[in-house]
Design a binder for these strands. Structure first.
Lengths: 101, 101
DNA sequence: GTCGTACTACGATCAACAACGTACTACGGT
DNA sequence: ACCGTAGTACGTTGTTGATCGTAGTACGAC
């Protein structure tokens, strides 16, 4: 069972977070994770890019500290690290969710 | 007297705004404009990049609708379009200002 | 008009990044 | 053991973007 590593809350930088959120595909992922609060597998997201590109975007989000991912069978369940982002940049996620894309 | 054009509030997209704010130099400009509320000339900003690069960053911010700029003599006075951003993406600027960079 | 200041325009370079396809791994089910 | 599913890894391509330097413009002051 592979394990993915996630940055500690203290290592989450506003720079990484904003760079990660400056892409519409990744914002779509985040928005879906905010509205459906449960962890979801990557294939639950109808993204307009190929599979390997999806992998890339999920990794960017994970490495920025925005989502957490853990293996569950052949799937990876992703969920929002709301506590972390709300601690580091309070209000950011809500502001982005509220604004229509 | 040259005139610079600015996007209408309605044309300001979250995509452009987030892309613009995903750069530390541009965030520094925005943060300074938020704390010193008056319009300031480009040379008031101690930015760690060359002059032509500064021009580039100011233009990105202006074209994203985040700042307005107008000529005043040989200088260009820049100010934050707080009303526009607060209308389009309420809470975003405050969230970014509050978070330490 | 001449000079200095403030900024722009243009062209170049280099790094970052989004996207893809193919080949691969890991796991569950049969 | 075999197959299918879910996702990764790797190498590549094309685009965007940050940076710079140099040359140029526009204005104010003298």
């Amino acid at each position: 069972m592979r394990v993915l590593d996630h940055p500690d809350a203290a290592d989450v930088t506003i720079d990484d977070v904003l760079r990660a959120l400056a892409d519409p595909v990744r914002r779509k992922i985040v928005r879906q994770l905010m509205t459906n609060r449960d962890a979801q597998s990557c294939s639950c997201f109808a993204l307009p890019v190929g599979k390997s590109t999806q992998t890339h975007h999920f990794r960017v989000l994970r490495e920025a500290g925005i989502i957490s991912q853990e293996y569950q069978g052949t799937s990876i369940m992703s969920s929002l690290r709301r506590d972390v982002i709300d601690e580091r940049i309070p209000g950011l996620l809500d502001a982005i969710l509220a604004a229509e894309d």
